[in-house]
């Protein structure tokens, strides 16, 4: 259970958001509505001005108690819009990076399972520089999963891809939701993607929550 109650001023823009999320929740809203700033706060990359963020029983941020857990201790997997694979490491090393940094024991079974799930076995020896956009995103998803996160943040993971690549990755995300038990926060402005992946929706516009509930919120937005 993720619960967020934060405020942040970014120049002229102000973000003031409260929501709780379980299982697979979509943050839905047009570009510039503050979704990415919000996930950056959950990941610990951006510091809210005020508020509180907690995950399960742990407080990650609380301005009143001066708690601010740094990103490397949050154990939150983050798939960025542009993949952000480490360019100087091979795909295999990118996948193992989170395990090394968190001091996790080797877990060959899980690794093989995820490599197979995402169909990236043939890429392991390659470097990120010569992967296609779709391959890069699949590796980024695998990398975030292999650190055994408590929560997975996906920030428009398909936005940098063309239509064909999106259709290629969507089924992987659906399988991932069904086969791993990691709760997901999925950020998107595409109702179609959200319909496939999320069970709950939080609608955000201009830095404010304008609705929270089930997938029916999407119909209100599109119809």
């Amino acid at each position: 259970m993720l619960s967020v109650d934060v405020e942040k001023r970014l120049g002229e823009f102000s973000l003031k958001v409260t929501f709780a999320a379980d299982d697979s929740t979509a943050l839905f809203g047009s570009s510039g509505s503050g979704k990415t700033s919000l996930v950056n706060m959950i990941a610990g990359l951006v510091r809210p001005d005020r508020g509180r963020i907690s995950l399960d029983d742990e407080i990650l941020f609380d301005s009143a108690c001066a708690i601010d857990v740094p990103p490397h201790r949050r154990r939150i997997g983050y798939v960025f819009q542009e993949g952000r694979l480490l360019p100087h490491l091979s795909v295999a090393k990118n996948l193992d990076y989170g395990r090394w940094m968190n001091g996790l024991p080797r877990d060959q079974a899980t690794r093989e399972h995820i490599v197979k799930l995402l169909n990236i076995g043939h890429l392991l020896d390659r470097r990120p520089g010569n992967l296609s956009g779709g391959e890069r995103q699949r590796v980024a998803i695998g990398r975030a999963l292999l650190m055994k996160p408590r929560l997975l943040l996906l920030d428009e993971p398909l936005a940098s891809l063309d239509r064909a690549r999106r259709l290629e990755i969507l089924p992987f995300l659906v399988r991932l939701r069904d086969e791993t038990k990691v709760p997901i926060v999925y950020v998107s402005h595409q109702a179609g993607e959200i319909q496939r992946i999320a069970t709950q929706v939080v609608r955000i516009e201009d830095g404010r929550v304008i609705g929270a509930g089930g997938l029916e919120l999407l119909d209100a937005a599109t119809g």
Binding site: L86, G98, M101
Partner: peptide
Amino acid sequence: HKLEDASATLGAGPLWVFLTV
């Protein structure tokens, strides 16, 4: 900087980010 942020979310503390990225 975004690559350094990415490695921080993967569990690398500031010193490890510096040494490995």
